[in-house]
Design a protein around this nucleic acid. Structure first.
Lengths: 352, 352
DNA sequence: ATGAAAGCGCTAACAC
DNA sequence: GTGTTAGCGCTTTCAT
């Protein structure tokens, strides 16, 4: 506007306006090289007045790096899970390392079609990649990442190398042990079954790991694991009824570990209908990524910090980038612990 | 790997390998210009074998555009709201227009500090901006956008121009009218008060607009609006109690419109405690961005489609970009209607 | 149908 | 302290 031109201001223009060379202007603006304090001030002021913004592409080309990290993700629940908290943590961590974040959503549905893959994947635009996608990566991504042509870190996915994921197995154990210490013996594990299971599709490792952690803790205590779960899933309308049935048995569990807070509401309703009062008659631990909004009963949780997940994945990626380009040393998998959040839903079993 | 070099393949290298000029290779790869079918095939194959990826920065510089759209957002609830569904819709719409998406989170806390603003804002990296941030934009963003140096669209914010937002006023009316048509007369509006209100900070327009829509519909029907809301907010632990009190009055409302589904749970608990059965004794409409997970009572909702919000904002931005750079014609504000989702929580009032 | 020349905006290396 | 030269990878223009 000041220059009367709709095109961006360039170094050359500033130079011309001040009777300097573009090089001096460049030096002045970045504070590198030798430049007089006087010139520096004049340049800074002119740049501000002329609304100068450095041309990112030009700088990238010159410096041989873009300063951009790509995040590959899917919003399909069965293929990926990207909480906003994680995204925000990634952004913040990248910002601290002077990187920008570019997104590439893996399109739902057909994967292979070459025309639809993001140009972030087809072009050379990012210095590194974060992959928040668990299942069935499109060919374009695979070539890029598995061929090791771009340093990448897998998020929330168990891989042989270069991955950051939650320690769901340990958390399953920890949940069971907490209840065991309180004196519980009849502890059940609750999952309504994943939609993916019905389709032969592989499902997220946490589905198995959380259960296994629970199972091993029970076995270590000489107790029988009890899986409350219909292999082919339980429909939405039938859940309360199913839970009622489970709770009506004489040797009903005194405590339940739930795969997700999504699973607990029907159970709580069923308990209420039968006349069981929580937590007195039934203790409850659920996995969750967020402390749920206030209600009458603050649930005890295995609380996944998606913030830490995001931070650590960036940290690892920065590590790979720092290693001299030729080396690109692989990194060992990193398991993020899941903390026990003490709510109000766990007490010793009745009659104890 | 094939070339034994860790650096990226370039056009020149392909050209050298095939005994061609870089220009021909460029033409062949993009299908532009005259090139023999035979050469084209050879080039394509070589490019694939050598894992060629076009250098984004070089192309950007040459073409004078980056093909990138920046999304400015905040994860602070009082300043912005970015549902994943909206993000995904934006990404998808951009992808259809062959644009990539770059993120810039406005840092929480101190706004002005110059060092911390994303380089997306300091550099020339994006052809246009989407601004999903309602309050207290940092200086850097303001200069850029208000100075009209980058085409931008405001999302979820009422502005004189170039914005896309929900028609919260119309939705408030619509909700009230729906209940009026069912025969309700004592209809209340429920909000627990925003945290922001306690800080003199301006709050999101929807807080006022939804209520105003409700109020005007009531007035048009010759009825008295009732606002259930504590001006300085109601703490988490006291909400059930407060609702119980409101519902205990003899002229208690027969229907309630809630600012958000977050607000309804305490009300439902209170109703249950008092012995009021939903929806028989109390009808309920809540604003929401998602159809909530299955429970015993499927709520009737004013359902905001963040997918449409995202799509439309991209559509508008594309419109601004298409207008020849000099013109950059401003666009009129666009209000997205909020649909009434018929759940099970609205029936005629008792005794009718 | 193919190639030579030029230049997008910037900065590292080297004069002066 | 400042300027000149050169080139990052690509594409548009214009010869051949």
């Amino acid at each position: 506007v000041l220059t009367g031109d709709s095109v961006a201001t360039t170094l050359k223009e500033i130079a011309a306006a001040l009777g300097l060379s573009p090089v001096s202007v460049s030096k002045a603006l970045r504070g590198s090289g030798r430049i007089s304090e006087e010139t520096r001030r004049r340049v800074m002021e002119a740049a501000r007045k002329m609304r100068y913004r450095p041309h990112g592409a030009a700088r990238s080309m010159r410096e041989g790096r873009t300063g951009i990290i790509g995040l590959i993700y899917s919003t399909e629940q069965t293929k990926g899970n990207l909480p906003l908290e994680q995204l925000s943590a990634i952004q913040e961590a990248l910002s601290e390392n002077s990187f920008d974040l570019m997104l590439a959503e893996v399109p739902t549905g057909q994967l292979g079609q070459p025309g639809k893959t993001s140009s972030l994947l087809r072009h050379w635009m990012a210095d590194g990649m974060l992959i928040n996608h668990q299942i069935a990566l499109p060919e374009a991504v695979n070539e890029l990442v598995e061929g090791d042509h771009v340093p990448a870190i897998w998020i929330n996915s168990k891989q042989p190398h270069n991955c950051v994921f939650f320690d769901d197995y340990g958390a399953g154990r920890r949940a069971a042990e907490h209840l065991l210490q309180l004196g519980h013996r009849r502890i059940a594990y609750l999952d309504y079954g994943h939609p993916a299971q019905t389709l032969y599709a592989p499902y997220h490792y946490s589905v198995l790991d959380r259960y296994l952690g629970y199972e091993h803790a029970m076995q270590a205590a000489g107790l029988q694991p009890r899986l409350i779960m219909a292999p082919d899933g339980i429909g939405a309308g039938e859940r309360v009824a199913a839970c009622r049935q489970w709770l009506a048995q004489p040797d009903r569990p005194t405590a339940v570990i739930a795969y997700s807070t999504n699973n607990t509401t029907p159970l709580q309703f069923a308990a209420a209908e039968i006349g069981l009062k929580l937590p007195r008659d039934l203790s409850l631990i659920a996995f969750s990524g967020v402390t749920p909004p206030d209600s009458d009963l603050r649930l005890t949780l295995m609380l996944q910090s998606y913030r830490r997940l995001g931070q650590q994945s960036v940290h690892r990626l920065m590590g790979r980038l720092a290693a001299d380009a030729g080396a690109q040393a692989s990194q060992e998998p990193l398991a993020i612990p899941i903390d026990l959040y003490h709510g109000q839903s766990c007490v010793p079993p009745p009659g104890q």
